[in-house]
Amino acid sequence: MIGTHYVYWLLFALMMIGLYVVISHGNLLKKLIGLTLFQVGVFLFFISIGKVDGGSAPIVSDDVETYSHPLPQVLILTAIVVGVATLAVGLGLAVRIFETYGTVEEEDVLERDTTP
């Protein structure tokens, strides 16, 4: 079990560190960094699904017998792009929040809304 599944477990640990940062940290930029960690963990999980022992990159050539699966790689290419797009929008929002509230801490923002 350990020998065959250790990769998954380490990746789950990675995801959960990210998820913890997203939920627990109040700083909006830190949340975005946490979101990136979380997503990268998921990306690695997908890629490890497609990996074959002793395989090589799925670029067909005559002297290679086994290839890792191309499909998870295609999916993750898309997902990486989605991730950076989300990051850009999130950062744009964080900057605007800082400009209007003068802070990027979630709790301070909420406080400044209730006491105008």
């Binding site: 930029l29 975005l32 960094i33 990136t36 990268v40 990306f43 690695l44 890629i47 490890s48 497609g50 990996k51 074959v52 395989g55 090589s56 990159a57 799925p58 670029i59 290839y67 890792s68 998870p72 790689q73 993750i76 290419l77 990486i80 792009v81 991730g83 950076v84 990051l87 850009a88 950062l91 964080a94 900057v95 800082f98 400009e99 990027v104």
Partner: peptide, 29 residues
């Protein structure tokens, strides 16, 4: 893990663009 295309993209996006954007965002906040 044999995902060279993904590695390429992650290097360009994660190390390049994301970092630049994060630093840009930090400079403004």
């Amino acid at each position: 893990l044999d995902a060279v295309d993904v590695a390429f993209t992650e290097a360009a996006v994660g190390v390049g663009i994301s970092t630049v954007l994060l630093l840009g965002g930090l400079a403004l906040t």
